[in-house]
Design a protein around this nucleic acid. Structure first.
Length: 117
DNA sequence: TTAATGACAATCG
DNA sequence: CCGATTGCCATTA
């Protein structure tokens, strides 16, 4: 049968569903994609992200409320800058109102309908 | 094919 | 609260 591997294109689609000013987590994306334990793999997917900046990978943070990574150690700064620009306040590498900014209402059904180029 | 790596997460001390 | 450890999954060499 088909492999149980996570769907990269699906992950990107789900991430595109995250509205501006909101954030999600690697874990939430992995879970929405049908692989709840593949949070780390999602991180790897973001790292390679060939669809940037079309895909808002800067809206993906740690489940802990911390920013996480973004390219190099210098990239985290840019990530915080982008989030602040969208209205998401960041303090000391950590989201201030993480619980309220957290987005988890993914529509996998809709995401599966269209495919990424 | 096996070993090593990394933009994660949960647990432990 | 913070640092260290272990587990997980997919990619890369």
């Amino acid at each position: 049968m088909g492999k149980d591997k996570i769907r990269i294109d699906l992950v990107y689609k789900l991430l595109k569903q995250v509205p501006k000013g909101r954030v999600t987590t690697y874990k939430a994306l992995a879970r929405a994609a049908g692989h709840p334990a593949a949070a780390r793999a999602v991180g790897g997917i973001m790292r390679r992200n060939p669809y940037a900046p079309a895909v808002p990978c800067h809206r993906v943070v740690y489940s802990d409320g911390r920013l996480g990574g973004f390219g190099g150690s210098r990239g985290v700064e840019a990530k915080a800058e982008l989030l602040e620009k969208e209205g998401v306040k960041v303090k000391d590498g950590r989201l201030v109102d993480f619980a309220n900014r957290y987005f988890d209402a993914f529509s996998v059904h809709i995401a599966e309908k269209s495919r990424l180029p």
